[in-house]
Amino acid sequence: MLTIKNLHAAIDGKEILRGIDLEIKAGETHAIMGPNGSGKSTLSAVLAGNPLFTVTEGSATFNGKDLLAMSPEDRANEGLFLSFQYPVEIPGVSMTNFLRAAVNGKRKYRGEEPLSAGDFLKLMREKKKLVEIDSNLTNRAVNEGFSGGEKKKNEIFQMAMLEPTLRILDETDSGLDIDALRIVANGVTKLKNEQNATIVITHYQRLLDYIVPDFIHILYKGRIVMTGTKELALELEEKGYDWIKEKYQD
C-alpha cells in the first residue's frame, strides 16, 4: 500500500528526516516509536503533505501513485488520514458543514454524486454511535473549545466518517486519560479491516496494549534504527530510550 524509500525532509533548512525506508501492506499495523525530536511527527506531516516541510530526497508511493506529488486534499481523498497530535480549532465552521465538505469532497474525487442532507445526517448518527462520541460535539465549530480528549475523539469520529485506507495516528494517546484512551483505541480497532493499514506514532507503550502492532520501528535522529515485533515495545518500556541513543550516537 505504502512504500517509502530514502525519504529526506527539512524544515527551515534543517534536515529532520535523513533517509526513511518503510513498506506497509494492507491489513498491517505499524508502530513508530522513538525519543522526542527523533522525527516521528515530521514523518506524519510529510506524508500528509504539510507545506511547512520540504522533501529534499527520496520517494513515497501510495497505492501505486506518487504520494509526494499530490496536494494534501488528493492524498486524503486517496485514503490517507492523519489524526493530528494537535488538531487546530476552526471557529465559525460548524462540524456538520466541515464534514459534509469532506465527505462530498471525497465522493467528487471518485466521481460519485454528493450525499443528500438526509443521508449525510444518517451517516453521522451511525458513526457517532460507532465511536461513542457525544452527539453535541457535532453541533459545535470544528474543535473550538474542545478539551484535549474531545479533540482526539473527534479525530477518530472523522476517521470513521471518511473510512481511510491508511490511518496515521500521531501521538493520539498524548494528553488522554485512561477512559478516553480506551474509547479512542476501541474506535481505531473497530474500524480496522483487511483493506486498511495503520501507522501508530507514539512515545509510550501503553497505546500499544489496545492497538496491537505487527511491527515496531524505532526512529532516531531521522532514521529507522531498529525494527521488531511487539516485544520490542515492552523492552523499551523497561529500558527507556537511552540505550538506543548510546548505540546510535552519530
Partner: peptide
Amino acid sequence: REQLFYMQQRGIDAATAQRLLVAAFANE
C-alpha cells in the same frame, strides 16, 4: 495556514476550504 491544511487533510480542496473559512470569518 494551519486551518487550511487541516481541512485539506480531510479531503476538502483548497478553494472550498478557503470559501468555508472566509464564510466563517463573516459569520461572526
